[in-house]
Design a protein around this nucleic acid. Sequence first.
DNA 1: TATTGTTATACTCTATAACTATA
DNA 2: TATAGTTATAGAGTATAACAATA
Lengths: 158, 158
Amino acid sequence: MEKNRDSRRKLAGGVELGLLPRLVGYMLRQSQLVIHHEFHAAVKQENIRAPQFSILEIIHRNPSIRPSDISKSLGISRANLVPLLAELEAGGTISRKTDETDGRAQALHLTPSGVAKLKRLHRIVQTVDERFAASLGPDGRETLLRLLQTLLHGATSA
Amino acid sequence: MEKNRDSRRKLAGGVELGLLPRLVGYMLRQSQLVIHHEFHAAVKQENIRAPQFSILEIIHRNPSIRPSDISKSLGISRANLVPLLAELEAGGTISRKTDETDGRAQALHLTPSGVAKLKRLHRIVQTVDERFAASLGPDGRETLLRLLQTLLHGATSA
DNA sequence: TATTGTTATACTCTATAACTATA
DNA sequence: TATAGTTATAGAGTATAACAATA
């Protein structure tokens, strides 16, 4: 605990960051930015971005899922989901049809092209994620995921 | 029908998230969103947001720092820093003057009002951060911060 | 020539409110 | 009335390119 006090966390430029490196929020933000940057560059060849990838993954694992349920699962508002789904449909990766039992809802599915694309994305994404996980050591990744999950679940019940 | 929930990673709505909860990038993003939401609500009364707070903290710890060095430290481009600094200056929390030795550069300082505001922000921010840290257990916070720092600066000795 | 601060611009994600059509 | 999908809009973060003043 003593090391926290006297360690002057400076960046390459010799700038003192003060309280920031001690804040979970700041460190989460910086880490997320770095990984997102790598992710974005890696999947650019597939012409997709992070939110769209998570949507594809959800649809793949939950065939006939409705946009409303995707919204709740990923924390993307229904309104903001609309252009994302439209983009995926226009790209031929997902299909929409009206739910048989509820005329208001839509049933979403991956197209064969979408399944193939998701499979390619899995390889790319796991490669990126493994590269970061490797720097954390074997239990580091599991420990980090466990802590983040705790953070997520503990916060939502407030 | 009610299968073991633990083997399958489902959210409250019964949606299968598949690979996502195993991805460091996804979990970082979700966690960061939750904390940022809390942070945003907590500091709204001070009429400030996360990037502006980190800028105030940097200036406070590095009097006479130049915008260019803030840019490098926080990963905010010089161009995007301009409106943020203008907003802080307009709010009376920072002051700018031309660097004495370099006519191109500016020397940034907190105003007395800015120092007082930062002090109030410290209390608010730490309260929010402590609330999340508490859910992680005694060593959880330190472990998390260490892992994130490792992620940021590549592999250093644990 | 290179750097600092700046302007302008575009894109993405996020956050609300209100509308339609269905239930 | 309540919900699902949609439209519209505004805000904020991010990313480039280009410019004037200065080094």
